[in-house]
Design a protein around this nucleic acid. Structure first.
Lengths: 337, 337
DNA sequence: GTGAAAGCGCTAACAA
DNA sequence: TTGTTAGCGCTTTCAC
């Protein structure tokens, strides 16, 4: 037990202590093929004796880094947190560590973030980066397995984990229409207009075509910023000005929760439906009717996909998760329509 | 523009392309002292030409890894998410990347997680790991700057970011007592008994001594599991069995929110106060009276502390954040006492 | 089954 | 100011 505080033990030290070669130690460590039990034992002892821990950087330099890059866009969104939990949970049972980087601010930054991950020699990338051009992602995916969340622009170069946003929207809208609503507004974020093939954009387009194809009222798009508070403010303002709708379909629960507060304050007769089914939605204080997406499973699956690629798969897979309507009280306001 | 897809450009390639030495390139990259403008220019061109990106693993092998390790304990807790946002936000303006690892399951695993970070050559560690023995942390901190969240067992070997939990508890309890409550229960998690010097343990002890020193009723500790649902279930059960208290002081908002649902269902006359002031607490659907802690700032500060250490500071600092009472509606139930 | 030796890509001490 | 060179710690042929 002569632990040296000055310098961490290297594989060289272990080899010397065990009276074998570096290569032998390396093999035991990675339990590679062709090591005798005696060797295994000797090395094992030396390792614990010296408290030896392999340095990942050295390992990464010539090969594997045992790390997976995660690009996130908005920690403020509970749904993303669910996905993140799923990813980290799936990673926990593997030898991989997560390197996390923000990918939100614009296409340029988003790409930079992905490149930063590559600089780290990550063996795979799991990210939500709606603004980065597909060709850039494909370029990166040529060398490193990539799984993208919520990108409906399918590619054979990378995998994707997505929800069926068109279907989910129909679920929500049919529910509302079935309740007798004709004038339904859609609350979404401004960027949903500019970015194509993102979940929000698809929900928005599906909303519009649903309104039109069923001959309901003229679509009403309520634009706001990300977050509950902006959603509250935007909806409250519209409501005060006199709303011409009886229900709101929000692009996601965070917006729905903000909208719900405004609705309860000004027009408790208006129905609200969200999207995602974040944990707080089921709390009786909200009773938010929403479209469930299995965030945790989606996150875990994304990691699995990257691991599969690492294990050899070469054809792209696009995993589509089916949405499920969760009917609660927010779509049944006190006064019937 | 002859980008080679087979092999990423190395510093050697850049040197050759620019007609200089590797060392020169390295210096330009790190903008070290003593490089002529001409050299800078030549190298710069070659770099963009080849799309060269330094490999962090190689860099880490002999020195700096430009990564900071983050150990987290519970992504399900919105307060931790706030802190995480703060950390990641602070890191975003630096050249450091975050390597994240879970530290929750027991002391053994918690330590393993920290070691895994060390294996990654992280230059600093920011973590919440209540179960890891102080001596182990000190051992790690001897080589790598460490900042711990919520560890009240101060040490001169590592920095700490904590809230004043005793004071926060007094704030909450005084508020309740001022409202006329005498029989106040404390809802907390079971582990608060076994772990000393954690925020929950301190809140619990402060609660008890407050009850005793003010000669209020006998302390009532309600034990539950982590999460809103368990809190709801535990409180609902107690309430159904006939509660002997008029208010609940919950150890944190997540528990408080679960408790609030149960209270509203069974005994709307009971007051509820939480701790942390997570974003959802201020939503009118809850109006949760709670003790505010600046999670985002605490996270950002922790990163700053680690950066300061990296910049040379050697004395430990223990940053204590003052709690602030946020009075909302949950402590003013319909029927006055 | 085991060991010697050649890298992996970068930094830094030292020469020139 | 610029170039040479010796590592950093591990993996991995390829002989023995």
């Amino acid at each position: 037990m002569s632990l040296d505080r000055r310098r961490a033990a290297t594989i060289e030290d272990v080899a010397r202590a065990a009276g074998v070669s570096r290569a032998a130690v390396s093999k035991v460590l990675r339990n590679a093929y062709g090591v005798s039990p005696a060797m295994r034992e000797k090395v094992g002892n030396a390792v614990t004796e010296l408290g030896y821990r392999p340095k990942m950087a050295a390992r990464a330099l010539g090969g594997r880094s045992f790390s997976i890059g995660i690009g996130y866009s908005d920690l403020g969104n509970p749904f993303f947190i669910r996905m993140l939990s799923g990813m980290l949970g799936a990673l926990a049972t593997t030898p991989y560590q997560a390197v996390i980087t923000p990918t939100q601010e614009g296409a340029r930054q988003g790409l930079e973030a992905l490149e930063a991950l590559i600089d780290r020699q990550v063996e795979g990338i799991v990210a939500v980066s709606p603004r980065v051009a597909q060709e850039e992602i494909e370029r990166i995916a040529a060398d490193t397995p990539v799984v993208m969340f919520g990108r409906h622009d399918v590619s054979s170069a990378y995998d994707a984990v997505i929800g069926d946003d068109a279907e989910g929207t129909v679920l929500a809208m049919e529910h509302l229409a079935g309740l007798g609503h004709r004038r339904i507004a859609h609350l979404t974020v401004a960027e949903s207009e500019t970015l194509a093939e993102t979940p929000h954009n698809i929900r928005r387009r599906s909303y519009t075509s649903f309104m039109e194809s069923l001959g309901l009222a003229e679509p009403v798009i309520l634009l706001t910023e990300e977050g509950q508070d902006p959603a509250y403010a935007s909806v409250a303002e519209v409501l005060r000005a006199g709303a011409d709708f009886t229900a709101i379909f929000a692009a996601h629960d965070d917006l729905a929760i903000g909208a719900l507060a405004a609705v309860r304050e000004h027009r408790p007769d208006i129905s609200v439906v969200g999207y995602d089914d974040v944990p707080i939605a089921r709390n009786p204080a909200f009773g938010l009717t929403t479209v469930h997406q299995p965030g945790f499973e989606m996150g875990a699956r994304a990691v699995e996909l990257v691991l599969e690629r690492l294990a050899g798969r070469s054809e792209a897979v696009h995993e589509v998760f089916a949405p499920v309507l969760c009917v609660r009280t927010s779509s049944f306001p006190p006064q019937p329509i």
